[in-house]
Design a binder for these strands. Structure first.
Lengths: 362, 362
DNA sequence: TCTCAGCACTCAAGTCTACCGAGTGCCAAC
DNA sequence: GTTGGCACTCGGTAGACTTGAGTGCTGAGA
């Protein structure tokens, strides 16, 4: 009834219209109540207009085909991962943010201040607040951003800090060991030399630093370049911001599940690859065991890309139970990902228009 | 039997020797088993050599005085916050790290690399791994650290990033809005001017920046200084690193408790003030409701200071159930806090010896 | 052939009972 | 003051019973 003819023609490939309507009613009600849904509850749904007996026989077929399970005889049905998948792919209406949510997002992005890291951190909180699920934000890998500034600042006689400012507003800082006792003047010279050589190149493709003539300066430059490239290639280089992990405690009733999921979230590397895996498979939702991480078998992940100039520049994600509210979650992730993309893109775009690649700087 | 005479003379002020021994046995066993402890179990303890009947009558007194409670008749006793407090103050033996733990700590601090933020982050994981409790690390407030470098890097025509490197290895970066379209040359001039003026002063007491003569430079300097001071005075300025929050899930059986504690940990400001409150009262342990945070009523907090040159420079803490293993937790927090202090102190000490306050730089 | 009301059946969850056992408080004896 | 003995309390477990939600099946009607 509620489905348009065009949608029917798509869904009919796998399930006939009535089965799809029944599945939709079950998923929707189960998401809302967390209780197994019985045939009479489905019959009460306005989108289904057959008797509960007919629904029961359809449910038997849906269970046989793997869309539903019964926790036990004399209980209602629960969707399987496959059931959720069909719901997400064919049945869920696109989902819109409510007006006050939209307001919340837009005022967030107009008000938020601070460096890129701060913005990403707060974005994860925003996304979690919007949806009541745990949120994950993976920032743009700085490899693609242009280098705006390089500076070597002495900390002790043998240690210095390399500070690199990138065109996307990110800041990388990493300490280096200096072989000899190096004076501030030499460090300043090295900073200037590095700045001149590396400005405008990216961390991923560092320009070669020409020989300066001064031996101690060249030593420092070599150290800096190798430190930078190894830091960029380190596996845990990409920063992950987790928002609202406490929401997980409300999403599951088994405390072991909560602990398992929290443990996963502590491993930044795993989170990054999870999101990347999902996106590389062209999905925006991974349900239950669709991603290969067993501790997350009772979780669903909703991902939205962050894109800058059409290129992948990170992701925002939501982590909740498989019975999560997919339409809302997808809408929220989508909106936030889009706005975050715009925010980063606007900065970079303005940069490239007004400052070029920075090669006229020195 | 196991208590030395000197300890007895201290404990006798509140509880006689036998009561203290009984309380100690109950606390120790309850920490281990999480089950109410009965009189016969206490009688089995080697440090108590009276019959269970005698122990029972002592337990009645201990309960009357508020050291113990009984969950219900016909159950054993559980320590109250007051009971834990007496245990911590008078009974707990100082506690030593095991040899492999000590090894773990020292190899961590010799191996750890990265900027200050990275070190603090990883320290929180270390502390959590050592103890199986959630750990908290509050870094040195950068207010006291000397400024090693100030730089203004243009991002777009109207936005720039101020990057300040501090003598303790910390890096502050915050974006500023530029009123007019400012060229890179002006920003470079402003950087030099700021650097010359602010080097060696602290974020808390920013030196005044003299007028440079160039109007646009002065405008930028004013913006930078006001942005810096407002950022430093912002309430959420101090960074908190939480390690092993998933351990909380194993520490409590009620999922609501876990959620409440996790929610607290998400509020950096609350965590900072909690640790500060505890330390300002001269405590290293706050048990149950001793700190005023209701959601943490079933938690105990163990704190150890991070001190640089005898001054407070942050804290490390552990958060666990009130029935946590206080001796181990205190030993771990103490050791890690001490080593972290040394680490930061060594850097700064070397700095002050070899580079002075930096005023000869420019 | 599809639909559906009716019906017998299943089974989780709640209630009631009985029982066990850990642990207590009390008391009389030492 | 200490202790063994003893009656008592009460949470937890197990079993019997009831309830009710929900099912699968079947036969009649469209």
């Amino acid at each position: 009834m509620t489905s348009e003819p065009t949608q029917n023609s798509r869904t009919i490939e796998e399930l006939d219209e009535r089965k799809a309507a029944i599945l939709e009613a079950i998923v929707t009600q189960y998401i809302g109540s967390a209780q197994p849904v019985g045939s009479s509850q489905v019959a009460a749904s306005p989108s289904v207009s057959v008797s509960s007996a007919t629904i029961r026989s359809e449910m038997v077929a849906l269970e046989r085909d793997g869309y539903l399970v019964q926790p036990h005889t004399s209980a209602g049905r629960i969707p399987t991962d496959k059931g959720y998948r069909f719901f997400v792919d064919h049945l869920a209406t696109p989902g819109q943010l409510g007006p006050q949510q939209r307001q919340q997002v837009s005022s967030f992005f107009t008000d938020v201040q601070g460096g890129l890291e701060d913005v990403l951190e707060r974005t994860s909180s925003l996304l979690s607040d919007l949806t009541s699920y745990a949120a994950v934000v993976v920032g743009p890998s700085h490899e693609e951003a242009g280098i705006r500034s390089v500076q070597v600042v002495g900390l002790t006689a043998h240690r210095a800090l390399v500070v690199v400012v990138l065109s996307d507003g990110g800041v990388e800082n990493l300490p280096i060991e200096l072989g000899d006792d190096v004076g501030d003047e030499t460090l300043a010279l090295a900073s200037v030399h590095l700045q001149r050589s590396l400005l405008g190149s990216t961390l991923a493709a560092l320009a070669t630093v020409p020989v300066s003539g001064e031996r101690s300066v060249d030593t420092i430059c070599l150290t800096v370049v190798s430190a930078l490239s190894s830091a960029v290639n380190a596996p845990d280089h990409e920063a992950v911001y987790v928002g609202g992990p406490s929401r997980l405690a409300g999403s599951f009733d088994a405390i072991e599940t909560v602990q398992g999921v929290l443990t996963i979230l502590e491993q930044q590397l795993v989170v990054v690859s999870l999101l990347r895996d999902v996106m590389e498979r062209g999905l925006s939702v991974a349900i239950g065991s669709e991603h290969g991480y067993e501790p997350l078998a009772s979780c669903a992940v909703v991902v939205a890309p962050v894109q800058v100039d059409g290129r992948h520049a990170g992701a925002v994600g939501l982590l909740g139970p498989t019975r999560m509210d997919y339409p809302s979650a997808m809408a929220a992730a989508d909106a936030v990902g889009r706005q975050l993309s715009e925010r980063i893109e606007a900065d970079r775009g303005a940069l490239e228009r007004t400052r070029g690649d920075g090669s006229n700087h020195g």
